[in-house]
């Protein structure tokens, strides 16, 4: 597995968490809506490659974290709506906790200056 793949995995992992959180906050939503929400919050992460969202959605669906069905968008366009399943909610909680812990540890590392620890 090359360097490129690893970066993609990290991006996918983060993206997956963002997708779950978005669905948690907004309820059932189509792909475009999710992309726009992530864009609004994360800035340029999805500014260029909104398409990368779809493989992530598929993976989440395969894992059973989200479910999807066709529906009508706000301006009556046919779009596929994704919603969080119960398992997805559990996964979100678990991953949020993981994330908080990791973030806290990393934050502590950056906060410690050389010489603080003897």
């Amino acid at each position: 597995m090359g360097e490129k793949n690893r970066k993609k995995d990290v991006l996918q992992g983060t993206l997956a968490l963002m997708v779950l959180k978005t669905l948690d906050v907004l309820g059932p939503m189509h792909g475009y809506g999710i992309a726009r929400r992530i864009e609004q919050i994360s800035g340029d992460l999805l500014a260029v490659n909104q398409g990368t969202l779809y493989p992530v959605l598929l993976k989440l669906e395969q894992e059973g974290s989200v479910a999807s069905e066709w529906g009508a968008s706000e301006n009556n366009r046919r779009a596929r709506f994704y919603r969080l399943t119960r398992q997805g909610r559990k996964q979100l909680q678990a991953e949020k906790q993981d994330w908080d812990e990791t973030a806290a540890i990393i934050a502590r590392f950056f906060a410690v200056r050389a010489g603080d620890v003897k």
Binding site: H30, G31, Y32, G33, Q50, G51, S73, R77, R78, A79
Partner: peptide, 13 residues
């Protein structure tokens, strides 16, 4: 399904 989703996405955008 994928084609339809892409189309919907681009249309909405």
């Amino acid at each position: 399904r994928l084609r339809a989703e892409i189309e919907a996405h681009i249309a909405l955008q």
